[in-house]
Design a protein around this nucleic acid. Structure first.
Lengths: 225, 225
DNA sequence: TCTAATGTACTTGTATGGTAGTATGTTAGA
DNA sequence: TCTAACATACTACCATACAAGTACATTAGA
C-alpha cells in the first residue's frame, strides 16, 4: 500500500508523523504491531530520515516503543497511564472551572454560548461525530480563556492512551443528551459565578467518560500491558 | 571547546541531549542563544544526525526554537508557562496529598521517614545542594507511592521554564529550616490521615517557591518573551 | 550616493550508505 | 535426536552528501 504525501506546507517529517499518529490512535495500527523505518519509508516513498524522526517523536509520546537493533512496536495500552490521565484531568478541570467562576470573563461566556447553540443542533440531528468535537472544544475553551492552554495540551497528551482504549468502545454509546444538559449546567454555574456548584457538576460530568478497564482487558488481552 | 563523549551505555543522541539540556537549564546557554547543528556536532566530534535528533527532542520540550533554514535558538523563558506550571503543580500536589492520606500506606511512611532523617542532617550541616535534592525526592516519593509517577514527570517537564527562572535567584536564599518543618508537618498529617490539614500545609508549602516574575523580567529583559 | 541585483556563506531538511548489534533458521557434529 | 556453531537477514544508529531556503555583504548600475 503506497501513500502519497502532498501537503507542501508541512515538512515530510510532520506529514509522516500525523499519519502514523492517526493510524495508531484509530487502532489501524493495533498495539503491539511491529513496524520498521524501512517499511514505512517505502510505503510513503520517502527516505528513512523523516520517518525515523517521526518515530522518535511518537516514542516520546509513549505511542511507540523503540528497542535499538531489535525493532519498533506500537506501544501496548498502559492502564496505569489511563488512570493517571483521568486523575490529572479531573483535578485540573475542577481547578480551572473554579478559576473560570472567580475570574468571570465575558469572552468566555460568548464562546461557550456559541458552542452550546451548536451542540443543541447536533444533539437534535444526532450528529455524534460533530458533537464529539464540540465537546472537546467546550472544555478547551474554558482552559483557553483562563490562560491555561498549555495545561490542556498536557492533558490531551496524557490522554492518548485513554483515547485508544475508548476507541474499543462505540462512541455512540454515550448519552449525549445527558452530556449536553450538563454542559448547560456548567455554563449557568459560570454565569452565576458559583464555583462550588460548577466544580461539583464537572466532577459528575467527567465520570461519564469512564471505561470499564478490566472488561476491556479481558476482551482485548493482547492490546494491554 | 571540544567535549568528549565517553559513556558507552547511552547512545550518542542521549548523551548530547543530556549535556545540552543541562547547559540550557543551568543558563550556561542563556535564552536567545543561537546554536546550530553543525557547531555542536563539531564541538562533540560527532555527526549532525544525533545532534539534530537531540535538537528535535529539546524543541518538543520547549527548550529550543527551530526555524527551518534560518537557525535554532535557546527558547526565551515564557512567564505564562511558568505560571501554568505553578498552577498545575499546586492542584496536583494537593490532590495527591489527599490521596496519600486516604489510601494510607506503610511504605510511604517508611520512605518519607528515611528522607526526613536525612533532611534533618542536611539542614544542620547547611548542605543546601543535597537538601535541594532531598526536597525533590520528598515530593516525588509521595507521587510514586500513590501510583502517580507519570504525573510527577509531567509536572517536572512543565517546570523546566520555571527552573530556569529560578536559577536567576540564588537557591540558598531559601529558608530551609522552614521548608524542613513544613515537610515534618506534612508527614504528620499523612500519619494522622488528616487530608484537610495536609492539603492546607501543602498549599502554604508551595508558596515558598514563588518568584517575583516582574522583577526578574526587569533585571533580565533579554531572557524573557 | 542610493538602489537593486547577485554571489556567498550560512541554516535546517532529506536521501543514502555503512556499522554494530539482535533474532532466527540452518547445518555440522555428537 | 539433540545441541551448538554459524550464516543470513533483519533492526536501529550514525556519518555524510546533497537539496532548498535564508541572511547578508558585495557589487554593478543609475
Amino acid at each position: 500500500m503506497n501513500i502519497d504525501l502532498k501537503n507542501q506546507n508541512l515538512s515530510t517529517r510532520e506529514q509522516v508523523y500525523n499519519i502514523l499518529k492517526d493510524q495508531i490512535l484509530s487502532l489501524k495500527l493495533p498495539p503491539g504491531t511491529n513496524i520498521s523505518e524501512k517499511e514505512i519509508s517505502v510505503q510513503f516513498n520517502v527516505s528513512r530520515t523523516p520517518v525515523r524522526e517521526s518515530f522518535l517523536k511518537l516514542s516520546q509520546e509513549g505511542l511507540l516503543s523503540i528497542y535499538p537493533q531489535r525493532g519498533t512496536f506500537v506501544s501496548l495500552i498502559d492502564l496505569n497511564l489511563v488512570e493517571e490521565a483521568r486523575f490529572m484531568r479531573e483535578h485540573l478541570e475542577k481547578a480551572v472551572i473554579r478559576l473560570a467562576c472567580q475570574e468571570f470573563s465575558e469572552e468566555l461566556i460568548i464562546d461557550l454560548d456559541m458552542n452550546l447553540s451548536m451542540q443543541k443542533i447536533c444533539v437534535k440531528k444526532k450528529d455524534y461525530k460533530k458533537m464529539f468535537e464540540l465537546d472537546e472544544e467546550f472544555h478547551r475553551t474554558i482552559f483557553k480563556r483562563c490562560k491555561k492552554e498549555k495545561t490542556w495540551l498536557v492533558i490531551q497528551q496524557m490522554n492518548v492512551h485513554f483515547n485508544r482504549s475508548r476507541m474499543l468502545r462505540l462512541v455512540t454509546d454515550y448519552n449525549w443528551d445527558n452530556i449536553f444538559s450538563q454542559h448547560i449546567d456548567i455554563f449557568k454555574a459560570i454565569q452565576d459565578q458559583d464555583a462550588n456548584k460548577a466544580e461539583k457538576i464537572m466532577e459528575e460530568h467527567l465520570k461519564i467518560a469512564l471505561v470499564d478497564k478490566e472488561l476491556l482487558k479481558k476482551e482485548y488481552p493482547n492490546y494491554f500491558k
